[in-house]
Amino acid sequence: MEVFLQQLINGITLGSIYGLIAIGYTMVFGIIGMVNFAHGDVFMVAAFVALVAFLILTTWLGISSIAVALFIVLIVAMLFTSLVNWIIERLAYRPLRGSFRLAPLISAIGMSIFLSNFVQVSQGPRNKAIPPMVQGDFVLVTHNDYAVTLSFKQLIIWGVTAVLLVCFWYLVARTRLGRAQRACEQDQRMAALVGVNVDQTISLTFVIAAALAAVAGTMYLMYYGVVSFSDGFVPGVKAFTAAVLGGIGSLPGAVIGGLLIGLIETMWSAYFSIDYKDVAAFSVLAITLIFLPQGLFGRPDVEKV
């Protein structure tokens, strides 16, 4: 029971990170119908930017307040990653809009390879480890020497994710941008005819997706304290799994899917085999798509004859 409780806490933390990345997949897929393969690597780039920003703040500027440092790191990572994703969309995807279906996918895969190798070449292939940013935890339950703990960093991740999701939900559900996005999802040409700036809306979608991935990247760095150039792929695929599980195109679905994938992964690691935890996540992906292709909250896709 204690193990279960601990894994539940760990799973929700991991799931929050997946959920933040998954929103990026789901939004981009919703609006231009493309699996943005490079999104996982955008997340990894964000973690590296957070790393550099953190080192500048702590070792050069000597900021000792972790709260201030973390806040600045988060802002810097969000701004920079948004810029990166905005440029990627302009260069690699926009010219292919309305082109053949496979072209943007290949372009995105190429971009994914480019980003991870760019980081490898510019920052080196080794794992980058930093001293723990946040230490300490609450002990929730102790039983037979097994203490169920909720660490401060887990709490920060929960808090930041929750606050950002509320802001983001407001943005999408209540603002002009959100309306424009939903209009473009339905029919880009029609949206353009009624005065929606389609290019701008799509660009902003990429920017928001990147900003959320940057939050995930910063949290990832803070949580694990280590990042490497190859860390984009697997979290990327798992976050995509989360988006699919929740029903691609559905924003609450992405978050809930992320939490589910996080929980499945931690539970599987605890009770079955840690070596095969990725197999668990990938199997969930395959099983969901085969038996529930519209996901938990997605619209069913009816075959029209």
Partner: peptide, 13 residues
């Protein structure tokens, strides 16, 4: 691989 990825994007565009 850096150039490989870059070339994939360029050729597709």
């Amino acid at each position: 691989m850096l150039l490989f990825g870059f070339a994939m994007v360029i050729i597709m565009v």
